[in-house]
């Protein structure tokens, strides 16, 4: 039986340490691989339990640079992960998860909170569209509510506008 392979895409979240530790704890016998941007170093305590480190080409990927994006996806697909873990539930990471070719994709917001993400591109599109549509409808309703209920007035702000209130409380002449 082949080894269970986990890839954690570490794109700078401050909870990287917790997620790597939790992944090791949850899957003690798995092959744990951290996917890191070039400028990101794992401090010794963070690297505990990580079997392998895969370096990406760049720190940041943009929509304009399609070739770099394709290279990243190829690099991840080549690893054939059983589980692909991302640190945030963002649109970009949803798409990356959907294209990763892993058997399952999860978002670990922290060590305890795990969301299952779709593993196919169609699933990603469906999920993101539904989320957008729900959000847009709620936004329309609230914009309307604000427009209807907003109290009209020339200036809703208070007149006083000091830069720092307490910084002028006590002036110390000896400071210079």
């Amino acid at each position: 039986m082949s080894e269970f392979k986990i890839g954690v895409f570490c794109n700078g979240g401050t909870h990287v340490t917790e997620v790597l530790a939790a992944a090791r704890q949850k899957y003690p016998h798995a092959n744990l691989c951290a996917i890191l941007p070039p400028s990101f170093e794992l401090t010794p305590n963070r690297a505990d339990g990580v079997d392998r480190i895969v370096r990406t080409d760049r720190d940041n990927y943009t929509v304009r640079d399609v070739k770099a994006g394709i290279r990243l996806i190829r690099q991840i697909r080549k690893e054939r992960f059983d589980l692909f873990v991302v640190l945030f539930d963002s649109m970009q990471l949803n798409v990356l998860g959907g294209l990763s070719g892993a058997r399952s994709v999860e978002c670990w917001d922290n060590a305890n909170v795990i969301h299952r993400l779709p593993r196919s591109p169609e699933g990603v599109v469906r999920r993101l569209l539904v989320r957008r549509l729900k959000g847009f409808m709620r936004w329309c309703f609230l914009e309307l509510l604000m427009w209807v209920t907003q109290k009209k007035g020339p200036d809703l702000r208070r007149k006083e506008d000091s830069f720092m209130e307490s910084s002028f409380l006590e002036d110390d002449p000896s400071k210079y």
Partner: peptide, 8 residues
């Protein structure tokens, strides 16, 4: 409102 609109 922006977070609301994009649903995240």
């Amino acid at each position: 409102k922006n977070e609301t609109r994009i649903g995240r």
